[in-house]
């Protein structure tokens, strides 16, 4: 797709896509955002995680220029979103959580309107429309948007957000309404933008984040409680180190594990034993010896990987308590 002429970024803008400093948003006495600090590097596929009501949508609406911060600042590619809204809008694409379309339009007409608002010349607009309709699986669909399924609307939403070949794409829960195939298509589309466009997307579907994001931030009660690369986050907050063991007589092994100094907790998960350990290396030495000593057959023995879910719950619960 052809590029769109956009304001030249400053050196800072080239390195930082989103910068939030002390961002606060109050609705009466309630603080939806409470001094949010966040830096998103340019080119990142950035997951913005948080439970419902954490302030994800409010943050995105402020970045998109649809809501104003009570205090603090928000910058996109070096431009202040309040004072330089025009420059920001030229550089970004935005998909709200529930995109509102003109029901009487077709997908082609909506993309045409979106492209004309960006002032795209007709040849570029036609080329982009064709490519994006194809990408969204809406090529040749002449039905009006009012007759679309939620998934079709979501795909059109992603397409319209890409019409200006944005340098940053803001997506609010882009996959929440999609079926597994639609989800995969959108995630593949997002992953394909890596390195070319910064993608900042909010979601509570952790599997999506693990699949495409390189860095995440977790928002809870209006504050960013952690920002890190996914592996780093899991290592820091993924909970205790665990091993999963499957033997022919788990009851005997469970009793033996209760007395081991390196084992802090043992739980049954069907035929498996899930053992929280103080040191994985020690566990890998001791478990086979223990199993052999009990004359049990070892069917499976592996380290349980810390999950993003564990890290997420740890962070959000920690903030809540």
């Amino acid at each position: 797709m052809n590029g769109v002429a956009a304001p030249a970024p400053s050196p800072t803008a080239a390195a930082v896509a989103v910068e939030l400093r002390g961002l606060t948003k109050r609705y009466g006495r309630k603080a939806a955002l409470d001094g949010v600090e966040l830096t998103v590097p340019a080119g990142a596929i950035f997951g913005f995680l948080g439970p419902n009501g954490a302030g994800k949508t409010t943050t995105l609406r402020i970045l998109a220029g649809l809501a104003r911060p009570t205090s603090g600042s928000a910058r996109i590619l070096g431009h202040d979103v309040v004072r330089e809204a025009k420059a920001v809008h030229a550089l970004m694409g935005y998909l709200p959580d529930v995109p509102g379309f003109y029901k009487w339009m077709t997908a082609d007409e909506f993309l045409d309107l979106a492209g004309r608002l960006f002032g795209l010349p007709s040849p570029v607009l036609h080329e982009r429309k064709d490519a994006l309709l194809d990408l969204a699986g809406l090529a040749g669909v002449t039905t009006r948007v009012g007759g679309y399924s939620r998934g079709m609307k979501q795909r059109l939403g992603v397409a319209q957000a890409l019409i200006n070949a944005p340098r940053i794409l803001l997506l609010d829960e882009p996959t929440s309404a999609l079926d597994p195939i639609g989800r995969r298509e959108v995630l593949e589309m997002i992953a394909a933008l890596a390195g070319r466009t910064t993608v900042f997307f909010s979601t509570h579907i952790l599997a999506d984040v693990e699949r495409v994001c390189d860095t995440v931030a977790v928002l809870a009660k209006g504050k960013v409680v952690e920002q890190a690369a996914i592996d780093e986050l899991k290592a820091r907050h993924g909970g205790a180190q665990r091993v999963v063991i499957e033997v022919d007589d788990p009851a005997r092994l469970e009793a033996a594990l209760q007395g081991a100094a390196w084992s802090t907790a043992v739980t049954r998960d069907g035929h498996d034993l899930v053992v929280e350990v103080t040191d994985l290396n020690v566990a890998f030495l001791e478990v086979p010896a223990l199993v052999a000593g009990l004359h049990l057959r070892l069917r499976r023995f592996e380290a349980a990987e810390a999950s993003l879910e564990d890290a997420f719950i740890d962070l959000v619960d920690g903030e809540g308590s």
């Binding site: 609406r61 998109a64 220029g65 649809l66 025009k86 809008h89 030229a90 970004m92 935005y94 709200p96 529930v98 995109p99 509102g100 379309f101 003109y102 979106a114 608002l117 960006f118 002032g119 319209q160 200006n164």
Partner: peptide, 17 residues
Amino acid sequence: GERRAGTAALMLCKPLS
């Protein structure tokens, strides 16, 4: 009507003042 339908938001996040 456009505010309630969400169409205004989708238009005004583009270069439409």
